[in-house]
Design a protein around this nucleic acid. Structure first.
Lengths: 119, 119
DNA sequence: TAATTAGTTAACCCATTGGTTAATATTTAC
DNA sequence: GTAAATATTAACCAATGGGTTAACTAATTA
C-alpha cells in the first residue's frame, strides 16, 4: 500500500465544490431531488452549461441520477451524501491536528523552558 | 447586501484543497510552521512548483507567511485555521440539510417511484 | 568581490475547465 | 407524420492551472 494514495475522488469532490453554482445546485438537490430543468430555474444558466456542471457533480460522486419510468428525457438528480464523507473526514483531520497544535502551544505557554517556540 | 454573494473566498478555499500536494503541505504545516524548503522535502517537487502551490494556499487564505528577522530569504509558513471555517460551515450546512430531509429521502429511496436505480 | 544558498517571479507550454452554438435523442402536442 | 419540449453530447474557443526553465532578489560564505 502506498503511503501516498492519489485520492482522486477527494480531489474531484473538492474541485466540484469550488464552484458557487454547483454548491447552489447541491443545496437545491438537498431540499429535494429535482430534474435538470428545475435546477436551471435556480442557477440561471443554459441547459448545456448546467448539464456540464451536473456531469462534474456526478463524476465527483456527489450527486446521482435516476431515470424515471416513461420519459427517457428526464432524469432525477439527488445528492449522494456518502461522497461528502471523505471531505468531512479530511476536514476533521485538519481540525484535530490543529487542536493538538493548540495544546502544544498551550503547554509551551505554561512551561516555556521546555522547547523553543516561535509564536 | 446582495442575497447572492459570489463567495470568492469559499471558491478559492475549496479549489486550493482540491490538490493532493497542497493538502499534504497543509498537514505538514499543521504539525508545525515550516519554511518552503522543509515542505519541498516532503512533497518532492521543484522549488518553483512548490512556491506556486504556496501562493495558491496563501491567496485562499489557508496559510500565512511570516518573515524572520535577519534573513529576508526565508519565510515561515503556517496554517491560518480561521480560513477553514467557511468550508466547515458549508459542510455543516450540507450535513444539516441532509439530516432534515433524511426522512423524505429515505421514503423516496425505499419506495422509488420507479425501479431503475443507477446508484 | 564572487559564489553559493534560499526562495520567488517571469515567460512559456500544454492540458483542463467552462461557456457557446449546433447537432442529437426521446416524449408530448398537433 | 411534423413540430415543440426536455435534456444531453459534440465541436469549438477563451481562460485558467500547473509544470518547466530562466531570471531575479537577498543573505551567507569563501
Amino acid at each position: 500500500m502506498e503511503p501516498r494514495a492519489p485520492n482522486i475522488q477527494l480531489n474531484a469532490a473538492f474541485a466540484a465544490l469550488s464552484d458557487a453554482s454547483r454548491r447552489e445546485m447541491i443545496r437545491m438537490l438537498l431540499q429535494k431531488p429535482r430534474r435538470a430543468g428545475e435546477l436551471a430555474a435556480c442557477v440561471d444558466m443554459s441547459p448545456q452549461a448546467l448539464s456540464r456542471h451536473l456531469r462534474v457533480l456526478r463524476k465527483a460522486g456527489l450527486v446521482s441520477e435516476q431515470g424515471i419510468e416513461d420519459d427517457a428525457r428526464v432524469r432525477i438528480y439527488s445528492v449522494h451524501p456518502a461522497a461528502f464523507q471523505p471531505v468531512q473526514q479530511w476536514m476533521a483531520q485538519v481540525e484535530d491536528l490543529w487542536r493538538r497544535q493548540l495544546q502544544s502551544f498551550k503547554a509551551y505557554a505554561e512551561n516555556p523552558r521546555r522547547g523553543r517556540h516561535k509564536t
